[in-house]
Amino acid sequence: MKIKLIGIICIVLIALVISCQSDEQVEFNRYFSAGSAVYQEHCQNCHGAKGEGLQGLIPSLTDSAYLKSNKYQLACFVKNGLKGQIKISGRQFEGEMPPNDLSPVEIAQVLTYVTNSFGNRSATITTELANADLAKCN
């Protein structure tokens, strides 16, 4: 009787964990695939289909360390553009990215896509996270 109960509790717990995970996974997939479309339309011309950039003109999006250390600024970069000297994958860039007129949802989607493509890996950047970052843009 007791063993049966423990067994049922275990199964319920496991089921819960699995369903939570897949909820997260579903959310991630949703952001990622929408982000892929946003990327193709708004970023790919410059940064390339494989995030490879363009010579010394446009930086690649493959520098995971840079993306990680600027995690909370990425939304502002996309929204307001970026200019000035930066170092990406050991190479100096001094270009100018124009501001992108995207909604917070689209920004969250495209950043989820970028930070999980081209050899990068990170968690989902949700609209809430993007909004929190956008509130702090200077």
Partner: peptide, 15 residues
């Protein structure tokens, strides 16, 4: 040089 849309693609292909 400041063309945001098609020029980077054109010159990526020209290289």
């Amino acid at each position: 040089t400041t063309c945001p849309n098609i020029c980077p693609v054109m010159h990526r292909n020209m290289l």
